[in-house]
Amino acid sequence: MPKLRSTEPSKPHARLEKWIWLLIYGGLFAFILGFATSRTDAALGWSIATPGAIAAAVGVVLIYVRSRLKDDKQ
């Protein structure tokens, strides 16, 4: 009987995927919160929105990095 390959990522890859989605969703939430806050206080709003946008962009870049990593399980 052939060995079935597991679809679950290895532990380091799973940790990376957790960080990816945390950065994307957390960054988008912070960006939207900062954008909404900028209507009443522009400096505060953009100081919240800018790191949020950067965090979301880092998450997207990490998706590319994850796609280029080789799986240890075979």
Results as ranks from 00 to 15, higher is better:
Y25V: 14
H13Y: 13
V58Q: 02
W21R: 11
L23A: 13
V60C: 02
G26L: 04
R5C: 09
A42G: 03
S6F: 02
Y64R: 08
D71K: 04
W19D: 15
L62M: 14
L62Y: 04
S10D: 12
A55H: 03
K18I: 13
I32A: 12
A56S: 06
L28C: 15
Q74S: 07
E17R: 15
Y64I: 10
L28V: 15
K70I: 03
L33Y: 12
K18R: 14
W46V: 06
A36V: 08
M1Q: 13
Y25P: 10
F29T: 15
L23G: 12
K11L: 01
E17G: 15
G27S: 12
L23K: 08
I48K: 03
R39G: 14
L22T: 15
D71Q: 05
V60A: 02
S47L: 01
L69Y: 09
G59W: 02
P2H: 11
A56R: 00
I20E: 02
S67W: 05
K70D: 00
L44K: 11
L16M: 12
S67G: 07
V61G: 10
V65K: 11
R39A: 14
T50D: 04
F31W: 00
L22K: 13
D72M: 07
R68A: 03
P2I: 13
G27C: 01
K18P: 07
L44W: 04
P9I: 00
G45C: 03
G34D: 04
K73Q: 10
A36Q: 08
T37K: 09
D41M: 06
S6N: 07
R66C: 03
W46P: 00
A49M: 00
M1F: 11
L16C: 04
F31A: 11
G59L: 06
L16A: 12
G59S: 05
V60T: 11
A57K: 05
V60P: 03
